[in-house]
């Protein structure tokens, strides 16, 4: 992968808020946005929990008519 391609990918991730870029002289320092990553994980945990709950209700519905 070329340097330009890497930068292009990082810019896309920056737009999504997943990484942040700070400049130090001629250097670009890229950092992962841990808060954003945690939010995405928490979101999936939430949806996952909702499915667990829904499937428990389905089980009651089927097994205890």
């Amino acid at each position: 992968m070329t340097r330009q391609a890497v930068t292009k990918h990082l810019r896309v991730m920056e737009k999504s808020g997943l990484v942040r870029c700070t400049r130090r002289g001629r250097e670009s320092i890229w950092q992962l946005d841990q808060v954003r990553m945690d939010e995405i994980r928490s979101y999936l945990d939430l949806i996952s929990q909702q499915w667990d709950d829904a499937l428990k209700r389905l089980r009651s519905f089927i097994e205890e008519p």
Binding site: S16, G17, L18, R36, E39, I40, S42, Y43, L46, Q49, Q50, D53
Partner: peptide, 19 residues
């Protein structure tokens, strides 16, 4: 992404109660 982040905030009040 903004939607996913927001849902988590909502969960703190809403689905947290369900759990």
């Amino acid at each position: 992404l903004a939607r996913r982040a927001k849902a988590f905030e909502a969960n703190e009040q809403g689905w947290g109660v369900v759990v």
